[in-house]
C-alpha cells in the first residue's frame, strides 16, 4: 500500500501516516478542551504544501466529524448544555456575518492585518495568562473568599440587571438570554475576523463570563462548533469549491479516534488541571503567532487566498 495519497481538489500528494497522526493529535485536543483545533491544524496543513483556502475549508469539514464524535460522547455523559449552546450558536452565526462585513471595511482602511494580528496576540495573551494564574491559585488553595454577593462588582450588577432571565439547569447557572446571545455575537465576530473556529475564545468566555462548569463547557463548545463548521463546509464547497473531501476523510479518521481519547482523558482530569492545560495551549498559540510577526520570513510572499 502506498504511504502517499493524492488529494483531488488540493492537487497535491501528502503522507497518509502524517495526515492520520495530525488528525489524531488535533482530535485529542478537541475532545480534551472542546476546541475545534483549526488554529493548529490549518497552519500545519499549509506547511505540508496545501493551499491556505483548501486547508481551512477541508479542516472545517474534518472538525464536523471530530465535534460530532465529541458531542455524542459528552451528551452521553450529560455534559452538553443544549439550551446554552443553541443561544450561543444563534449569536455566533449573527456575529459571524457582522464580522465578515467588518473585515471588509477594515481591509479597505489599510493596516487591517496589523490591527487584527495585534488584537489576536493581545487577546490570546490576556486570556491565557488569566486562565493560568487563576487555575494555579485554585490548585494552591488560595481562592479568595467570595464577597461578590455582599458587594457585587459592576460587571455582576450589569449582568444581573439584564431582562429575560432564565435557568440553565445543566450548567447550574441563571442568566438573561441576552448574555449567551451577546457573547455569541462577540465571539462570532472575532472568529470571522481572525478566520478561526473560535473554540479557544468561546471556552474561556463560558468559564469566566457565563460561569459554567468546565466539563459542561467542553461538551457545549463542541456542540456549537459542530454547527459552525458544518455551515462553513457547505458554503466553501458550494461557493469556492475548496473542500477536499479525501483530505478531510483521512484527517477525520484520525481525529474522531483522537476526540474519543481526549474525552476520556477530560473526564479523568480535574477542572483546574484542564484550565491550566488550556491556558498553556492558548499561550503557545499566542507565542507562535508573535514569533511569526517578529521573525523575518525566508520567502516574504505566499499564495493569496488564505486567511
Amino acid at each position: 500500500m502506498s504511504l502517499w495519497i493524492y488529494l483531488p481538489v488540493a492537487g497535491n500528494s501528502v503522507s497518509l501516516l502524517m495526515l492520520l497522526g495530525l488528525g489524531g493529535l488535533v482530535g485529542f485536543l478537541s475532545g480534551l478542551f472542546g476546541v475545534g483545533g483549526g488554529f493548529l491544524m490549518t497552519p500545519l496543513l499549509i506547511m505540508m504544501g496545501i493551499a491556505p483556502t483548501i486547508a481551512a475549508a477541508s479542516d472545517a469539514n474534518q472538525i464536523v466529524a471530530a465535534s460530532a464524535s465529541g458531542t455524542y460522547a459528552h451528551a452521553r455523559a450529560g455534559s452538553v448544555d443544549f439550551k446554552m449552546g443553541f443561544l450561543l450558536l444563534l449569536g455566533g452565526l449573527a456575529g459571524g456575518s457582522v464580522g465578515v462585513l467588518l473585515i471588509r471595511v477594515l481591509r479597505g482602511l489599510g493596516q487591517a492585518d496589523l490591527l487584527i494580528s495585534a488584537t489576536y496576540v493581545i487577546m490570546l495573551g490576556a486570556i491565557g495568562s488569566y486562565m493560568l494564574v487563576d487555575s494555579l491559585k485554585e490548585i494552591r488553595g488560595k481562592v479568595r473568599v467570595q464577597v461578590a454577593e455582599a458587594r457585587p462588582s459592576v460587571w455582576a450588577r450589569l449582568v444581573n440587571g439584564l431582562p429575560w432571565r432564565t435557568d440553565f439547569p445543566r450548567s447550574r447557572v441563571e442568566h438573561s438570554v441576552l448574555m449567551p446571545l451577546g457573547l455569541g455575537v462577540l465571539v462570532g465576530m472575532l472568529s470571522a475576523i481572525m478566520g478561526v473556529g473560535g473554540g479557544f475564545i468561546m471556552v474561556p468566555v463560558m468559564v469566566y463570563l457565563l460561569r459554567m462548569p468546565m466539563h459542561v463547557v467542553v461538551g457545549t463548545s463542541l456542540f456549537q462548533i459542530l454547527f459552525t463548521c458544518a455551515n462553513v463546509t457547505v458554503l466553501q464547497a458550494a461557493v469556492n469549491h475548496t473542500v477536499d473531501f479525501v483530505l478531510a476523510l483521512v484527517l477525520l479518521i484520525g481525529s474522531v479516534i483522537g476526540a474519543q481519547l481526549g474525552t476520556k482523558v477530560n473526564k479523568r482530569l480535574k477542572a483546574e488541571q484542564l484550565k491550566i492545560l488550556m491556558a498553556i495551549i492558548v499561550l503557545v498559540v499566542m507565542a507562535k503567532m508573535l514569533m511569526g510577526f517578529l521573525i523575518a520570513p525566508d520567502i516574504p510572499v505566499s499564495y493569496a487566498g488564505g486567511h
Binding site: 464536523v64 460530532a68 479518521i253
Partner: peptide
C-alpha cells in the same frame, strides 16, 4: 458540501 458534512457527522457518531 452537504454530502461531505453528512459523511463527517455519520463517521463521528459511529465512532
Amino acid at each position: 458540501g452537504v454530502g461531505a458534512v453528512l459523511i463527517a457527522v455519520a463517521v463521528g457518531l459511529l465512532t
